[in-house]
Amino acid sequence: MKKLSVLLFLTLFLSGCSDNWGWYVVNPYNKSGWVNLKFLISGYYFTLLLSFTSILISVAVGLLVALPGLSKNPWLRKFNRVYVEIVRSVPILVLILWVYYGLPPMTGLEINVFWAGVVALALSDSAFQAEIFRAGIQSIDKGQYEASHSISLNYRDTMRFVILPQAIRRILPALGNQLVYMLKMSSLVSVIGMQELTRKANELVVTEYRPLEIYTILVLEYLALILVVSAGVRWLERRLKSDERV
């Protein structure tokens, strides 16, 4: 709450300097300013859709990659290491460009901007998710597996009912960080033309020539988004903690 009020104050303060600045460009009280502002804010739609779709996929893929990393079989462990190392070493921006421009001619598949963004973001994030899950699962006491074994649970049930529920509670802060990171990284998908927050701001700058004001709004948009999401993650953490009693 305090942060939000500071934010509000900052905006008001900045709008006070309207002599040197050109705040008319996003001033909700004049018609074109209001249209511009709506245009900028509408970028939230794809920023959110892109980020949440990507994080869901990357969590699933990350888990699937983490499990072989915990296996006794050295080949499965090797697969986990190779996947993580390769994916982790490619910059996200490069991955986005490669998936959008490189993948279609290589595979003959058509891919639109949105799904190219999702594939690139999810792929890149999955390596981090895999490491987070691996660490989380490894932190669970060996006795939990032994107890599961002794009541005849198979591997799947042991993971599903005993290990993962505990591991996920422990890694929730890390997953929250990844989500915030994802929201920020989604701005890179603007380079292939995804109409999210950053792209919208860029386009408006080209027509209005007011980069200072428009990018300031962009910064505030991300700031507000991240603050809200972080608060949501903390709320979820508290809720899960309260019935954990560990």
Partner: peptide, 14 residues
Amino acid sequence: RVGMVFQQFNLFPH
């Protein structure tokens, strides 16, 4: 067919 009771109980805390 075989049950086991452990020194550290190993109950599922969640």
